[in-house]
């Protein structure tokens, strides 16, 4: 017996019987995986495509905006405020509104306004605006002295951005990417309302429109697990890319250093 039916039995008085009671149209428990797993695959594809676009566009855009600022590598205040303003507009619209508002643009690009392809466009727009700000913020946390070092070492602007700015900000960028990916999983569920497919679509059509609580619960569990998995992977990558984080390998290294020092001290002054 499923948890929902149990819950329904517990709460349902004669009056409140409606939405919580399992009804005849419900997807049988055994069929839920067949319904939900392909949807999970669609969500992963959608979020995957969007995140690829977001990184490819967001990283350079964030780096450019950062360096157009007054103390950047190629300062240009007017261009900086123009780009910054555009990004802010992208950031300020709630996703549902943005999605509907840019339907003509989506149609122009994909030729359709439903399905995965149509969802990817507004998600990318929102994701790029989000990630551009994250990149800017990450770059701001890199010590400016490193840019000076890179400059005096003869680096070009591109080399300096790659090594002294993005290179040093990698852990922070991965942390931001994690937040961004989770936001995109959320957006993909919202995109389900325009028939984008994926977990969100299943949750809306079965869970909401057909009151199928078992399916709703299944989608919730999957979304929670997915977000948790992204967070765990993201955190691990941040630790992996930060040499000065305290990890087991670091402690091993410290022991090795101590041993080497003792050995070299012994070699220098033989007893």
């Amino acid at each position: 017996m499923s948890a929902t039916v149990f819950a329904g039995a517990l709460f349902a008085g004669p009056v409140l019987a409606g939405p919580l009671r399992a009804n005849a149209n419900d997807v049988p428990l055994a069929d839920i995986p067949a319904l939900v797993l392909p949807a999970l695959g669609e969500t992963l594809i959608m979020v995957g495509i969007v995140m690829a676009v977001v990184v490819v566009v967001g990283v350079p855009l964030g780096a450019i905006i950062h360096n157009l600022a007054r103390d950047g590598l190629f300062p240009n205040p007017s261009l900086h405020s123009a780009l910054s303003w555009i990004v802010s507009v992208g950031r300020s619209l709630p996703f549902l509104i943005l999605m509907v508002a840019i339907i003509p643009f989506t149609r122009l690009l994909t030729g359709t306004n439903i399905g995965i392809a149509a969802a990817v466009v507004p998600m990318s727009v929102a994701g790029i605006a989000f990630f551009t700000r994250i990149v800017e913020n990450s770059l701001r946390s890199v010590p400016p002295s490193l840019v000076k070092v890179a400059k005096s070492s003869g680096g070009s602007s591109f080399q300096i951005i790659r090594t002294a700015q993005l290179g040093e900000a990698v852990p922070s960028l991965i942390g931001g990417l994690t937040i961004n990916t989770i936001a995109m999983i959320e957006y993909s569920a919202i995109a389900g309302t325009i028939g984008a497919g994926g977990i969100g679509y299943v949750a809306i059509t079965y869970g909401y429109q057909r009151f199928d609580n078992q399916v709703m619960l299944a989608t919730i569990i999957i979304l929670v697990a997915l977000v948790a998995a992204v967070q765990v992977i993201g955190d691990a990558l941040v630790r992996l890319t930060t040499p000065h984080s305290s990890t087991a390998s670091d402690r091993r290294f410290a022991r090795k250093v101590a041993r080497l020092d003792i050995e070299s001290a012994n070699a220098a002054s033989p007893v």
Partner: peptide, 13 residues
């Protein structure tokens, strides 16, 4: 011109 900066000039990663 080689420049030696004050102690914080190394790339941490």
């Amino acid at each position: 011109i080689g420049t030696v900066f004050q102690a914080d000039g190394l790339f941490s990663r």
